[in-house]
């Protein structure tokens, strides 16, 4: 599956991810995260998952990135910090992270599930996704819907308490 377009996208995503962590200015970090989102959407598209790709773009670039922007601006995080970006013991963190990654990668490589027989690529239409969501995966959909409704009601309650007369 390692093709030219995939390599370009992977490079874009990785560069964006590193930039999102390393940039000093928080707004630049948010923009780098947006680049990562766009790269992921393109990766989905490259795998033939049109609906997921465009939905990723719509939700992550259009909503999540904007939410991050709002959070940064409303909390005055836009100023560039004076002190160093990393705590002194950062190499320990990197070492542990790399070790965990190596272990997980080794475990996954050993697993028989990692080598399934190559499946024939199927063209999944939007209609099929919709039908699956309404029949086979309806429980997941309902649970997600319930969660989002709860979040929405919570947000409304927070906003309501704020506006009452004292």
């Amino acid at each position: 599956m390692v093709t030219g377009p995939f390599l370009i996208l992977a490079a874009l995503i990785l560069v964006g991810a590193v930039a999102a962590v390393r940039m000093r200015n928080l707004v630049h970090c948010v923009l780098a995260v947006a680049v990562v989102f766009v790269g992921l959407a393109a990766a989905y598209l490259q795998l033939g998952a049109q609906f997921v790709g465009w939905a990723q773009m719509l939700i992550y670039v259009g909503a999540v990135a904007i939410l991050l922007v709002f959070a940064v601006l409303l909390t005055r995080g836009g100023e560039v910090p004076e002190r160093a970006l990393f705590s002194p013991g950062w190499h320990w963190g990197v070492t542990i992270g790399a070790a965990v990654f190596a272990l997980l990668a080794w475990a996954i490589r050993q697993s028989p599930a990692a080598h399934p027989p190559p499946a024939a690529p199927v063209q999944v239409t939007v209609e099929q996704i919709g039908t699956a969501l309404m029949t086979h995966d309806v429980l997941a959909l309902e649970v997600t819907g319930l969660l989002l409704t709860a979040a929405l009601i919570g947000a409304v309650i927070i906003a309501m308490n704020d506006g009452g007369p004292q």
Partner: peptide
């Protein structure tokens, strides 16, 4: 003729929001 053409329209259109923010900031 994209199968998810309407979704494409809105997905690409949302970039405009980020662009407006970029310009202003």
């Amino acid at each position: 003729d994209l199968e998810a053409g309407l979704l494409f329209f809105f997905a690409v259109g949302t970039v405009a929001e980020l662009v407006v923010f970029m310009a202003g900031w």
